[in-house]
Amino acid sequence: MKKIMEKAPGKREARKEERREAILEIAKREFLDHGYSGASMSAISAELGGSKGTLWSYFPSKEELFAAVLDHATREYRSRLADVLKPGEDLRAAVLQFCRSFIAKISSPDGVRLHRLIASEVGRFPEVGDIFYRRAPQPTQQLLADFFERAMDAGTLRREDPLFAARVLTSLCLGVQQRVMWGQEWPAAERDSEAAQVAEVFLRAFAPE
């Protein structure tokens, strides 16, 4: 009996986590298809099945659900990025790999749809921009800043505010990504070539004096 009682909570937690994952997948489609303002908690609940109370018990508000969707959508990428920017990694190789992976991420169909969603909604719903910034750009920039600070300490980058350097690099990547925001074609080979150019521009700008 004791063994059964020990296993039961684990199973309940697993089912609870599966339910949460299902909510996030449905909510992601709802937000991307209808925008933040058009997304309906009722529609998400209906697709999920069960009562509305089930959805509200996991996420008491649309804001919290949107934040959780962003965390879920960027969790795997942040993990990969932490591996790229690990201590001791070659600076040039890490910067190049970051540019390639970051540009690929923000140029993906879901990445483009998300950026368009934020741009179209933030004027009416400032909280959307705040939630997005704290869940996506800010953690990415902080990971970069920590990596750049170590590089500056080692003398492989010139001394500068590491967070400023991180913002410069992400801004350069966003700049070359703009074409897909407006529906232009961007072949993968050309995208990788421009990622390499962005990395080179950054490394020259922040080369040790």
Rank of each mutant, 00 (worst) to 15 (best):
D90V: 07
P87S: 13
T140G: 02
E121Y: 03
Q178V: 04
P139T: 01
E17C: 02
G49Q: 05
Q138K: 02
M1P: 15
F125N: 15
G129L: 04
G155M: 04
D71G: 00
E89A: 14
D161Q: 11
I106L: 03
L81K: 04
R15F: 05
E89M: 05
K3L: 14
W56M: 12
Q184N: 11
I106R: 01
R204K: 13
F147H: 08
Q178S: 12
A39G: 14
S101A: 11
E89H: 00
K105H: 01
S193H: 15
A205D: 11
A207W: 06
A46P: 01
F125D: 15
P87F: 08
R167Q: 10
P60M: 02
A199N: 05
A39H: 06
V128Y: 05
L157G: 14
R135C: 05
E160Y: 07
L157T: 06
D161I: 11
L32M: 10
S120C: 12
F31S: 11
A22M: 07
L203W: 02
M152A: 07
I23F: 04
A67D: 09
P60L: 03
F147A: 08
G50T: 13
A199V: 02
E18G: 02
C173G: 10
R20T: 09
D192Y: 11
R124A: 13
G35Q: 10
A136K: 07
F59Q: 06
M1T: 15
M152N: 04
P208M: 04
C99Y: 06
S120D: 15
I131H: 03
L85Q: 02
S45G: 15
S193N: 14
V176F: 06
A165H: 07
L81P: 07
P162M: 03
A68V: 09
T170V: 15
F31Q: 08
I103E: 08
E18M: 08
S57P: 03
A46Y: 00
D71I: 00
L65T: 09
L144S: 10
A39L: 06
S193L: 08
K11M: 14
D192F: 08
R134F: 00
K16H: 06
A154E: 10
S101F: 01
R167P: 04
I106N: 03
S45A: 14
E121M: 04
L91S: 12
K2M: 12
I26F: 00
A46M: 00
S101I: 02
I44Q: 07
D110C: 02
T170G: 09
S40R: 01
F147Y: 13
V95H: 03
D90K: 08
E21C: 03
S51V: 03
P9W: 00
E149G: 07
A166Q: 14
M181K: 01
L65P: 08
Q184K: 10
A104K: 08
F147G: 02
V180H: 07
I26G: 00
C99E: 07
L174T: 04
E21T: 08
V176K: 05
K105S: 05
V201F: 09
P109T: 11
G35R: 02
A196Q: 10
F147P: 03
A119K: 09
P187R: 01
P139R: 01
H115M: 10
V201C: 12
A151R: 11
T170C: 11
A67T: 05
L203S: 14
I118Y: 04
R75G: 00
